[in-house]
């Protein structure tokens, strides 16, 4: 990797994004808006004394799911465009290394993800009084890690789509099952064995688990760090796999 080329690539991706106001709104405003919907959905629930609000559980997990979904979509389509417009092939004739390109995308989108989770977490805490035991900084960290996860998965999946339409089709195949099985709707230990085993292989599972650890404990726990490590390993593995989808030479 070359720091100059890496920085130039990240800056280029951010410039492309900056000129696209609708995508900026999608990244920064939409998650906060959807979070508000979740809040008002559960606004009038009646709770036994001492029980936590549904918003504190569901809203918190939403904070991790939004960046994952949004970044997966944006990355897979941007990367597909790079592949189909000929710019990728052209880049391969220049001194850029595949890692410069992948990490350039990773850095640019992670910055956007940090902004996104900053906004969404801020809204959750200050507007809707999100009440959890753990540290808000850790919640943002999980959200950013999830965004990077979405980026890595999007980079990888873009190799298997020929058109933007096909790229969007990965949403129900790759993303929705993870949302269903991550423990948001039904706790994982109450799922049947098959679903539980499948969810063991899904990255989103570990971010939800980490968030639940953060919510329940005022200090970071060992289980939480383990979830962080698992997610980090999955991200690295996906980026390595993605680099194999960027051959310099076509045969």
């Amino acid at each position: 990797m070359n720091p100059r080329i890496l920085a130039a690539t990240a800056a280029r991706v951010l410039t492309q994004l900056r000129r696209d106001h609708r995508s900026i709104a999608m990244i920064l405003v939409v998650p906060a808006g959807l979070l508000s919907v979740v809040y008002w959905l559960f606004e009038n629930e009646t709770l036994p004394p001492g029980a936590p609000r549904t918003f504190d559980r569901v809203g918190l997990i939403m904070l991790a799911i939004f960046p994952f979904v949004v970044m997966f979509l944006i990355t897979s389509i941007t990367m597909l465009r790079e592949r189909t417009s000929g710019t990728l092939e052209r880049l391969m004739t220049t001194p850029i290394h595949q890692a410069d390109l992948l990490f350039g995308y990773g850095i640019a989108f992670s910055l956007m993800a940090a902004l996104q989770s900053g906004v969404a977490t801020g809204v959750a805490y200050w507007v809707f009084d999100l009440d959890i035991d753990g540290n808000a900084g850790l919640v943002v960290a999980v959200a950013v890690l999830n965004a990077v996860l979405g980026v890595a998965l999007g980079l990888f999946c873009s190799a298997f789509a020929r058109t933007e339409f096909q790229a969007v089709q990965f949403m129900p195949v790759v993303v929705v099952p993870q949302i269903l099985l991550c423990g948001l709707f039904v706790a994982r230990d109450r799922m049947n064995d098959v679903f539980q085993a499948v969810s063991d292989w899904m990255p989103l599972t570990y971010s939800v688990e980490a968030l639940q650890e953060i919510a329940a404990n005022s200090e970071p726990t060992g289980a939480m760090w383990q979830d962080f490590a698992t997610m980090g390993a999955i991200v690295l593995g996906l980026l390595v796999l993605a680099s194999f989808t960027l051959p310099r030479k076509s045969s």
């Binding site: 100059r4 280029r12 410039t15 492309q16 696209d20 000929g86 710019t87 880049l91 220049t94």
Partner: peptide, 21 residues
Amino acid sequence: DPSVYRDLTVMDNVRYFGALH
């Protein structure tokens, strides 16, 4: 087929490929 970034300005495109070199 011209392979440049349509959503970037002329100068941004050339600067990026310049930076790679």
